[in-house]
Amino acid sequence: MSEARQAITYWLQRQQLSPAAAEQGLRLAGELPDGAAWRRFLERVFLFGGALLLACGVIFFFAFNWQQLPRIAKFGLLQVLLSGAALLAWHYSVATLKGQAALLAAMLLCGALLAYFGQTYQTGADPYQLFLTWSVLILPWVLVARLAAAWCLWLGLLNLALLLYIGRLGAGLFDGLALAALNPTAYALLFWLDLLALSAAEKAAAALPSRLLARFAGLLLLASLLPSLLTRLFAHYREHDQSPWMLLSYLAMLAVLAGFFAAYRRRRDLFLLAAACFSLIVLLTGVLIKWLLEWEPVEWMHSWLIVGLFLVASSAGAALWLRRIQQQWAADASR
Rank of each mutant, 00 (worst) to 15 (best):
E3Q: 07
A4F: 04
A7H: 00
Q16G: 12
A22T: 00
E31Y: 00
G35C: 02
A36L: 05
L42T: 07
E43R: 03
F46T: 08
G50D: 03
L52E: 14
L52F: 05
L52R: 04
L54C: 08
A55R: 00
F61P: 00
F62P: 02
F64N: 13
F64H: 13
P70F: 04
A73H: 01
L77H: 03
L78W: 05
V80I: 10
H91K: 05
G99D: 13
L114H: 01
T123E: 15
G124V: 12
S135T: 12
L139Q: 08
P140G: 08
P140L: 09
W141C: 02
V142I: 09
V144N: 02
L153H: 00
L153K: 01
G156K: 00
L163H: 09
Y165F: 15
G167P: 15
G172T: 08
L173Y: 12
A180G: 15
A181K: 06
T185C: 07
T185R: 04
A186W: 05
L196P: 02
L196I: 06
A206Y: 13
A206E: 11
A206L: 09
F216G: 03
F216M: 02
S224A: 14
L226D: 06
L226M: 11
L229Q: 01
T231H: 02
M246F: 10
L247D: 15
S249C: 15
F260N: 05
A262N: 09
L270W: 12
V282T: 14
L283N: 07
T285D: 11
L288K: 09
K290V: 14
W295R: 03
W295T: 11
V298G: 01
V298M: 02
E299S: 13
R324K: 10
I325V: 12
Q326Y: 03
Q326V: 03
Q327P: 00
W329Y: 15
A330K: 00
A331T: 05
S334R: 03
